[in-house]
Design a protein around this nucleic acid. Structure first.
Length: 464
RNA sequence: GUCCCCAUCGUCUAGCCCGGUUAGGACACCACCCUUUCACGGUGAGAACCGGGGUUCGAAUCCCCGUGGGGACGCCA
């Protein structure tokens, strides 16, 4: 088998979204699986909508997700890697001119209305097109047979000449796409199913150039989740942008793992898998044919599973990156040891890093919010005011040197009153944290320290 | 409207190619257990072969027709 060369060819005309990332991922996985080459080609022929900002976003997103490219522009803007460049279509004008001339010389293209059209071979006739509400010229041709790695044989009629160069002199997508894939010796075209109906045009173009078409593999699309509505996922949908997960400090390996599972599976029950295993097992015949709906909850779950197993040091790095962008981040991180202790307390409890600030507020301010609902609930049960008073009296003389010591202190208090640990836990937590969720109350007491615990208990008792 | 693709729990999916399973797993949901709250974890429950025809002793699996979902019909990519 000849060398596998695949490409991801985004256009920098919008935000980088889940669908693009999944297409990139399948290409990248196939390249890595086969030991082939992964090419990044920038399709920036739409001068009106291109932007450098979006171009940078493509580089950043791919890099963040761990998809390195063997050929293509260097992300820092210092040139390119690979010997089939340039890799930005805006710089390939001469090549397109050459290929246009080939078609013109062969009689397979002609000018009309200032544009250049690709000429289909066959008998011509005119017919009224209902959809476009006008008469059009059609060509009788044999159907194009697309041999798709994922869908099998697909037949489609291509029966109209189409524009390959606009009247402003710029080539269109179908043309540059085919020319570049020929020039870059692309062996497999892995792209979204929305391109399946373009493929007949592309096949005709390959024939026009007298070359064998690459192998096609049209992957299923990612659709909106039921609560988001109908249709394919678009950039405007919640959770659609890669940037969003990056800003929420999701683990890129969790996102990649989730994306890989959308339309592909290892053939067994495994879900969370290291990237090396995914690479090893990924193959085109294993890709599903039906579209998949995006499920943010499942992504969150996977992210949590990944988070749980992060070594403390890596988790701390993530936490710091996150707090560095929070308004009070500097203050939160001011005391390294204190910060570390709290973060590690929170790590096994959260689903994503962006829950860290709300989850740990009360460690960093005396102005922490009191959850009204929780308060109503806690204050309605037993005699919390009495427990609070007893706790305040006992804490002063309690040993705060360790969780175990605090636990023993509270337990002996409880036993003295014929009560249990739980009778003090809820109200203590409410008073000291304002909520009912968090690490164990003994850890909270110890980390906060006796002085602050006493202050908070007193303050709460006064207003409750 | 025309053309193309697709069809198993609410969702992602295994099983389909090479007909015979109590149709399996995961997320979500519910219950219980664990427990010092909240999570995690554990156990369990509910939950699917879109419909109709064939073929066959036997169909989720093969064929056809409906229906439903998705996509494409630009001098966008």
């Amino acid at each position: 088998m000849s060398q596998v060369r695949v490409r991801f060819a985004p256009s920098p005309t919008g935000f980088f979204h889940i669908g693009s990332a999944r297409t990139a991922l399948f290409n990248w996985l196939y390249a890595r699986h086969t030991g082939g080459t992964f090419i990044l080609r920038i399709e920036d022929t739409d001068q009106a909508r291109n932007s450098e900002q979006f171009l940078k976003l493509i580089y950043d997103s791919l890099t963040w997700l761990g998809m390195d490219w063997d050929e293509g522009p260097k992300p820092d803007g210092t040139g390119e890697r690979g010997s089939f460049g340039p890799y930005r279509q805006s710089q390939r004008g001469e090549i397109y001119q050459r290929y246009k001339q080939k078609l013109l010389d062969a009689g397979r293209a002609y000018e009309k209305d200032g544009a250049v059209w690709f000429k289909l071979l066959g008998e011509r006739y005119r017919i009224f097109d209902d959809h476009r509400k006008k008469e059009v010229e059609k060509v009788k041709t044999a159907p194009v047979v697309i041999d798709d790695k994922i869908r099998g044989q697909v037949e489609r009629q291509e029966d109209e000449d189409f524009v390959i160069f606009r009247s402003d002199g710029n080539p269109v997508f179908h043309f540059v796409n085919v020319v570049d894939d020929i020039e870059m010796k692309v062996s497999h075209i892995i792209r979204g199913e929305d391109h399946l109906s373009n493929t007949s045009k592309h096949v005709r173009l390959y024939e026009g150039f007298g070359v064998t078409a690459p192998i096609f593999a049209h992957i299923p699309l990612i659709l909106k989740s039921p609560e988001m509505g109908q249709g394919k996922m678009s950039k405007r949908d919640k959770g659609a942008l890669i940037e969003e997960y990056q800003q929420r400090h999701f683990l890129p390996e969790a996102l990649v793992n989730y994306l890989a599972l959308l339309g592909w599976n290892p053939g067994d029950d495994r879900e969370k898998m290291p990237i090396a295993d995914i690479i090893k097992l990924f193959d085109l015949p294993g890709v599903n044919q039906s579209n998949a709906k995006f499920d943010g909850k499942k992504l969150s779950h996977l992210n949590m599973v990944y988070l749980l197993e992060q070594p403390a040091d890596r988790f701390l790095v993530l936490a710091k990156e996150y707090f560095a962008r929070q308004p009070n981040g500097a203050a939160v991180m001011a005391n390294e040891a204190y910060f570390r202790e709290i973060m590690l307390l929170a790590q096994p409890k959260i689903k994503s890093v962006d829950e860290l600030a709300p989850y740990t507020v009360y460690f960093f301010t005396e102005e922490y919010p009191i959850d009204a609902k929780v308060k109503d609930k806690v204050m309605a049960k037993g005699d919390p005011k009495a427990r609070l008073a007893e706790l305040i009296a006992a804490v002063a003389g309690m040993d705060f040197s360790s969780d175990a010591a605090i636990e023993a202190g509270i337990k002996s208090l409880a036993e003295g009153k014929g009560l249990g640990f739980g009778d003090y836990q809820a109200v203590a937590r409410l008073a000291v944290t304002g909520t009912n969720a968090g690490p164990s109350i003994t850890s909270i007491f110890r980390v906060l320290g006796k002085e602050r615990v006493l202050t908070r208990l007193g303050k709460f008792a006064a207003m409750a």
